Amino acid sequence: MRRSEFLRAVADEFGARSTFLLNDLVLGEVGDRTPTQALDAGVPPREIWLALCAEMDVPEARRYGAGRLEPRNR
């Protein structure tokens, strides 16, 4: 997962709450950091995404593949 995919997944899943979650929610699974701090510290976006999903009780079916754009039709 790329940083852009992570940010898209957070926005898609959490909508208006995404800014708050990225900047204020401290996740123990990524070293007691906010998602933004974890990204800046070099934690892989996929690891942060999964920690955020676990903390916010996102169903497993919506955790994998999130943030990816649909392939272009050729």
Rank of each mutant, 00 (worst) to 15 (best):
L7D: 10
R33E: 05
F14C: 08
N23A: 07
G28Q: 12
S18E: 10
G31M: 10
N23C: 02
G28K: 12
E55K: 15
E70F: 09
E47M: 10
P59Q: 06
A54N: 14
D24N: 14
A61W: 11
F6A: 03
P71N: 07
E60G: 13
E55Y: 07
E70I: 09
E13C: 13
D12F: 05
G67M: 08
P44Q: 14
L27S: 10
A9Y: 05
R62V: 06
T19C: 01
F20H: 14
N73S: 12
R46A: 15
L69D: 14
A54G: 13
P59L: 05
D40Y: 05
L22H: 01
E55S: 12
L22Q: 10
V30Y: 05
E5G: 02
R62T: 03
F6W: 08
E60T: 14
R46D: 12
Y64N: 12
R2D: 15
L52K: 07
A66M: 08
R72Y: 02
V10E: 00
L39D: 02
F20A: 10
T34L: 09
C53E: 04
A61V: 15
F20Y: 14
F14A: 02
A38K: 01
G28R: 11
G65T: 08
G31A: 11
P44C: 01
F14S: 06
G67E: 06
Y64T: 07
A66Q: 06
G31E: 13
T34D: 07
F14L: 10
F14K: 03
R8C: 02
E60L: 15
P35G: 04
R33T: 03
R68Y: 11
L21C: 02
D32M: 13
T34S: 15
V43I: 15
V58H: 03
E5Q: 15
N73M: 09
V26N: 06
L50Q: 13
E13W: 00
V43E: 12
S4A: 15
P71C: 00
G31H: 09
W49A: 03
E60P: 00
S18V: 03
A41Y: 09
D40N: 15
S4R: 13
T34V: 11
P35N: 11
S4T: 14
S18Q: 09
I48A: 05
L21N: 05
L21G: 01
M1N: 10
V10K: 01
S4F: 04
A51K: 02
P71I: 04
G15L: 01
F20L: 10
D32P: 02
T34Y: 09
E60A: 15
R33K: 15
A54M: 03
A16L: 09
L39V: 04
R2T: 15
L39N: 05
V58D: 04
W49M: 02
D32Q: 15
Q37K: 06
L27C: 11
M56K: 14
G67S: 07
R46Y: 08
C53H: 05
E29T: 06
R68W: 10
L27A: 10
R33P: 02
S4P: 00
D12S: 14
T36H: 07
D24R: 14
V30M: 07
P59M: 06
A54L: 07
V43L: 03
D57R: 14
T19P: 00
N23G: 13
D57L: 12
V30H: 04
